[in-house]
Design a protein around this nucleic acid. Structure first.
Lengths: 256, 256
DNA sequence: CGATGTCTTGAAGTGGTTCAAGTCACGTGG
DNA sequence: CCACGTGACTTGAACCACTTCAAGACATCG
């Protein structure tokens, strides 16, 4: 589980002041280096990259950026969790993804020079802001950086396609199983437990992401508990039978 | 509507032979230039770009690439339509997007060096194959090309997020209205009629894309016809009341 | 002109929603 | 430390949108 450094609570939580600058740190020593943009760079390249990064803190429930904000930077999550969500004209919200430490957010703004969604912190978090104009300059100087940038962007595309497959084809229970096993795999890749973790998002967020209602989520959890597949109390999750959950999520099993 | 050049039918339609080379053509004169990758390039830059492009023909129902194929190129659609679709382990298919002339496909392969989905021609089509290794070289020489590449990739991300919003939040009728108005806008941007076009995909494909059944599609079409909003016979569509369809698709109206 | 695949229409069934009460967790203040 | 209040989550019963199953109509093409 990701340890959260104790943060003194900020009395002022307005948008402008919620994205707080922090002292500069170095990428080379970052625990998440191999997931991030400067993966595979040489020492000199790494410090070139370091020099454009701005370290910031974002408080829980505060936006890192909002829909329609001018696009200036992309962000690597250093600590904490975010959700990216669109809001349609008539007020419907759809969460497109949950992002954890080591992932990149903000790529949505590249196309139109304005962000196409909100990015909101699910808990007090820290990000590395990477000004895009400066990054673009580095691309010409450091080709491997460009390659990794494309790789991460493409992975984002694939992730969204998989989420569509989930929303379009799976039943409620399968969707939730897929959600759990996906989190499990991502935590596992980052060196955390694959079977025991804490949900950073509310039932409402989960329901929204999966295209369901919170009541359905509750009922599904109750059913999975009853079969001994999971143990969930509040937001603490334990996956008791990962293979069966995986099988469920790809539709091999149906539990009635 | 896009005119299809008469193609002599190919007796052999195997995968390998279905992606046929065609004589080289120039991007500068292409009708779709302003949607495509080399938008905004100078004359010299354009011919640099021309030199790496391979022109190909793909026959109806044939794959341009398959899931797990090694990633080597991206493709600009010059003529015709494609669908990109994922297939999950247990055989479920999900169409991620329909692509028309002027759009880029193949970006999904960048992350893992293998394509993450299928791209299949909905009709006899022509594409401009752009080998990625050569494109990468041009990026360093032609910065505007890189910018446009990122723009197109980001737009793809946004499109998929919007599709997720659709699958997660809208009712069947709203989804179909959104589908129609989306096609309308894209044809309109390309200089074709916004209200009258031909569907290149089957009801089955539409249903799959929208996360519904073909029966539901049929019934929705019947209802929209009955209200005088559309006139659809077979795959020929006429949008009789575009404003109402738009309103429907964003959930402002509900037609029971 | 018949065969085949695609699309439409009808009737019954159901998974998930909606509405409405609870229950639980947690922070606040007495 | 415990009572209280609030927001998050759970559970139950009724409903409905969409699916499923089944049949029939229509288009297309050898």
């Amino acid at each position: 589980m990701i340890a959260i450094a104790p943060l003194q609570s900020q009395p002022v939580r307005s948008y402008a002041s919620s994205v707080l600058p922090l002292p500069r740190q170095q990428c080379a020593g970052c625990r998440l280096h191999r997931f991030c943009l400067p993966t595979g760079l040489s020492g000199i390249q790494n410090s070139q990259f370091d020099s454009i990064v701005i370290h910031r803190r974002v408080l829980k429930d505060e936006p890192l950026y909002k829909m329609d904000d001018p696009f200036r930077s992309i962000y690597a999550i250093r600590l904490g969790h975010f959700k990216t969500h669109q809001v349609s004209r008539n007020g419907f919200e759809q969460i497109a993804a949950f992002h954890m430490a080591g992932e990149l957010v903000g790529l949505d703004g590249l196309g139109t020079d304005r962000h196409q969604c909100y990015a909101t912190a699910l808990e007090d978090s820290e990000v590395c802001e990477i000004p895009y104009s400066k990054l673009e300059q580095l691309f010409t100087e450091i080709p491997p950086l460009l390659r990794q940038f494309h790789r991460l962007m493409s992975e984002e595309l694939t992730r969204e396609q998989t989420a569509m497959l989930l929303l379009g084809n799976l039943r409620a229970e399968q969707r939730f199983a897929a959600f759990l096993t996906n989190l499990s795999a991502r935590y596992s890749a980052r060196g955390y437990s694959a079977t025991s973790f804490h949900l950073r998002m509310s039932r409402e967020d989960i329901a929204n992401y999966l295209g369901l209602t919170i009541e359905s989520i509750s009922r599904i959890i109750a059913r999975l508990k009853a079969r001994g597949l999971v143990s969930i109390s509040n937001r603490d999750v334990e996956l008791l039978d990962l293979p069966t959950l995986r099988a469920l999520s790809i539709g091999e099993l149906t539990v009635h």
